[in-house]
């Protein structure tokens, strides 16, 4: 797998730990939502850099208080047609003010890139090789957006009236 972040392919520093694998202090580790809730106190006290992975249906509000302690929230797409993680990403950014990495994992295709980026994702775990190149191409496919979302870009109407004000 390749990781695309900030428009380029980067090496992935994070270990996605199985629920029965011990977390080591010097290895940045992503644990499951279920495990995080069960072992929260131990995990939060550990010195490890931590991430949590949510699958559609997991309630992001249950980890809201712990977000300042997390570097990564991974949101899974079991099928790319399951769009629940888009809502979760916007909640993370816009309701809970999460500043860390929101990573898309699972069935992640380049055709979803612009939707994901605007919903607040900033890292994308994709298949190796040509796929990663395709993702970088996909970044330039649309240059304006009709609605504000979670990535801070202006909606078309803001661009329109900025021009009108300048004229």
């Amino acid at each position: 797998m390749a990781l695309i972040k900030n428009g380029t392919q980067v090496s992935d520093q994070w270990l996605v730990a199985a629920d029965d694998t011990p977390v080591q202090a010097d290895i940045p580790t992503i644990v499951s939502y279920k495990r995080f809730l069960a072992e929260r106190d131990t995990l939060v006290r550990s010195r490890a850099e931590l991430g949590v992975k949510l699958v559609p249906g997991d309630d992001v509000s249950a980890i809201a208080a712990d977000l300042p302690r997390l570097q990564v929230v991974a949101l899974d797409f079991p099928k790319f047609t399951d769009g629940r993680s888009y809502s979760t990403a916007r909640l993370l950014r816009q309701r809970y003010g999460f500043q860390g990495e929101i990573r898309a994992t699972g069935d992640v295709l380049r055709d979803q890139y612009l939707f994901m980026k605007r919903a607040g994702f900033d890292a994308f775990q994709v298949k190796d090789g040509a796929e990663a190149q395709g993702w970088i191409e996909a970044m330039g496919e649309l240059s304006h957006y009709y609605q504000p979302a979670a990535d801070g870009t202006n909606a078309v109407w803001a661009e329109r009236h900025a021009i009108a004000a300048a004229e």
Binding site: F80, G83, Y86, L114, F115, K117, R118, Y146, Q147
Partner: peptide
């Protein structure tokens, strides 16, 4: 129409 076109959250309902 404008709001719903290419909506980042509601394109995989």
């Amino acid at each position: 129409r404008q709001w719903s076109s290419f909506h980042p959250e509601f394109s995989f309902l």
